[in-house]
């Protein structure tokens, strides 16, 4: 479904990503692992087009080339993005936040409505008219995912969904991700928390210094302590 090949990215003069290649199939949960600053967030931002991929990079999604297109076109093609810092619209109510995310229904997928989302995130349903700024961190994290789902994506990019959340909320988050997988969505998430990754993901890609160092299933990763030690400092 998503195929990234030879992805390069730059911030000014700094070369951040070096020929990153990875693939995600529909219904799969893929996790990008790596240290802070390894390039996980930049990979996601380059896929969604917020960071412009360098020449020669290719990001194909559902058969179409995305590299070089503006973010809104990529999002409309069915790629949802949930940023690390949540970035909900604090002045807008829950319902208005969802409205911003709303896009046309997608063929072959049951369209998301606020009601369907509230079934997965019951907390949100109880605070429809509350401004985003008056929600707790965990509630905001749920809202940012729900908002992206309103665009009816086929694949959703989640940047560090467990960061800064209390252990109980992290469990809720893991459940939500598993539920999305059941809905048939592909999920690509970035994580530093291996425990969390192991609970939700099928496959892992390890990134370090902007380069892919290792790929494989999480079960295989369990048996490779050297890999974990070298790239994940576990």
């Amino acid at each position: 479904m998503l195929s990234v090949s030879r992805l390069n990215a730059f911030y000014g003069r700094a070369h951040i990503l070096h020929d990153v290649s990875l693939e995600a199939a529909s219904g799969e949960v893929l996790v990008l692992l790596g240290r802070n600053g390894a390039g996980k967030s930049t990979t996601m931002k380059s896929i969604i087009g917020i960071v412009r991929p360098g020449a020669g990079s290719s990001v194909t999604f559902a058969g179409a080339e995305m590299a070089g297109r503006p973010p809104h076109e990529i999002a409309r093609a069915g790629l949802g993005y949930v940023p690390e810092e949540r970035r909900i619209f604090t002045d807008l109510t829950v319902m208005e936040n969802l409205e911003v995310g709303r896009q046309a229904p997608r063929e072959g997928l049951a369209p998301w409505t606020p009601e369907r989302l509230f079934a997965i995130f019951p907390n949100l349903g109880r605070m429809r008219d509350r401004p985003g700024g008056r929600m707790s961190g965990g509630e905001q994290q749920m809202l940012t995912i729900a908002r992206t789902l309103m665009g009816n994506p086929r694949l959703i990019l989640l940047d560090e969904p467990s960061e800064g959340l209390a252990p109980v909320i992290v469990e809720e988050m893991a459940n939500a991700i598993r539920q999305l997988k059941q809905e048939g969505l592909a999920v690509v998430l970035s994580e530093q928390n291996l425990h969390f990754a192991a609970r939700v993901a099928d496959r892992a890609v390890i990134i370090e210094k902007g380069t892919v160092r290792w790929q494989g299933t999480l079960a295989t990763l369990e048996d490779e302590p050297e890999v974990k030690a070298q790239y994940l400092s576990v």
Binding site: P71, H72, A75, E96, N97, V100, Q103, R147, T148
Partner: peptide, 18 residues
């Protein structure tokens, strides 16, 4: 609503397909 959202974070609005 989109204008108000963009007032806060226009990059995020774009990433949501606007």
């Amino acid at each position: 609503i989109l204008v108000r959202a963009a007032t806060q974070d226009r990059e995020m609005v774009a990433a949501l397909g606007v």
